[in-house]
Design a protein around this nucleic acid. Sequence first.
DNA 1: GTCTATAGAATGATAGAC
DNA 2: GTCTATCATTCTATAGAC
Lengths: 223, 223
Amino acid sequence: MASDQTRTSILAAAERLYADRGFGDVTLRDIVAEANVNLAAVNYHFGSKDELIAELFVTRSIATNRERLHELKTAEEQGGGRAPIDVILRALVGPTLRGCLGPQNQRSTAARFMIRASIESVPPIRRIKNREIDHLRKFIGAMRRSLPDRSDVEIYWGLNFALAMAHHTIRESERLTKLSEGKCDLDDVEDVVARVVSVATMALTAGKIEAKTPARALARDAR
Amino acid sequence: MASDQTRTSILAAAERLYADRGFGDVTLRDIVAEANVNLAAVNYHFGSKDELIAELFVTRSIATNRERLHELKTAEEQGGGRAPIDVILRALVGPTLRGCLGPQNQRSTAARFMIRASIESVPPIRRIKNREIDHLRKFIGAMRRSLPDRSDVEIYWGLNFALAMAHHTIRESERLTKLSEGKCDLDDVEDVVARVVSVATMALTAGKIEAKTPARALARDAR
DNA sequence: GTCTATAGAATGATAGAC
DNA sequence: GTCTATCATTCTATAGAC
């Protein structure tokens, strides 16, 4: 179909332009010029500029969320319905980090688009992210099963901090590279994943360990 | 001067409208209507819409950064040039969190504007944030003095994660409240500060303790 | 059903009178 | 320093060709 061709051209051109220049700088006219289609085609196929952006973002989000849930499910099955907390956290932040970081020149258009989306956060994208809560609840459930002694509040804060570290590192990767004069290697994705998972795991378990071994913990803290 | 009156009215009206409705939804015409001034006055006093936003953001940023540095300086003076790491981290994230969180109905226009700025991150604001590196280097210096045994890489990652947790919690405070069904109390600002500082401190010191007491750490990890 | 051409409404910016 | 009038650009919507 010619329809599908036009639609696909628009999506590809839009993703490329948004990835390179950001949402604020790219007009519909830029997109249709790049895609060699008519201006009205965008409205015909997507309804509006915002819905075009939403479609791009939803497509990529679904892929990432599917990966996350697959990793989570696999881990829980292997553990008989209960996965280690660090494996759960890895399933939560790994796909996103792997999708967005890595050597600059190897980054796909999709990856650069998702980085842009996490930096600029325009209204249509914010609306979609707000519907992500049900997805996160699945991780909350797994974390509860993994750490039955932890209170819900601690679980929620742990998840919040894990996502915080992952997303902020993506958002501010350029600034961290500049600040550290390249000493923080953001191309080494697995190292970044390990750091985020390690800190989030500590946040979720540290108090518990100390509570279980108060004397040793006190002794350790004293020196 | 009538000039100053007009200028001030525009700033106040713009901050209020942006805080309430976001950068994308507020036009210059909305602002001049709210401020009871002429449309051309914005351009005359600020040059462009972006420069108006920049002026608003810079004013608030400078105030926060001043607070941060004051807390940092005080802490280092009290410690004879070397402050405890948790006090340094508190100086880093405390002012921002205190400025943006707290009971919704008590939040000042300035606070709501800064939350909006951290959520939407429009181009003029991003440009200003990119110049914040020198400010952060002062904290890097203090952290190095506080933890002379830690490598630079660890220090940079620790600062990155501390900022990540603070900013993400502000950005996504609504989502965290909804996800946790109110169990995470974001109105209790000092509790939030304590949580962020605690996790960041662990991230910066945990490995060190284990390295110093490998046998005990291994034993603890095994059970 | 698919696409083009074109009109309409809204916005940021500016020139020039006062 | 202030204001009116106006411009260029943008997104959106629709009438009608294929």
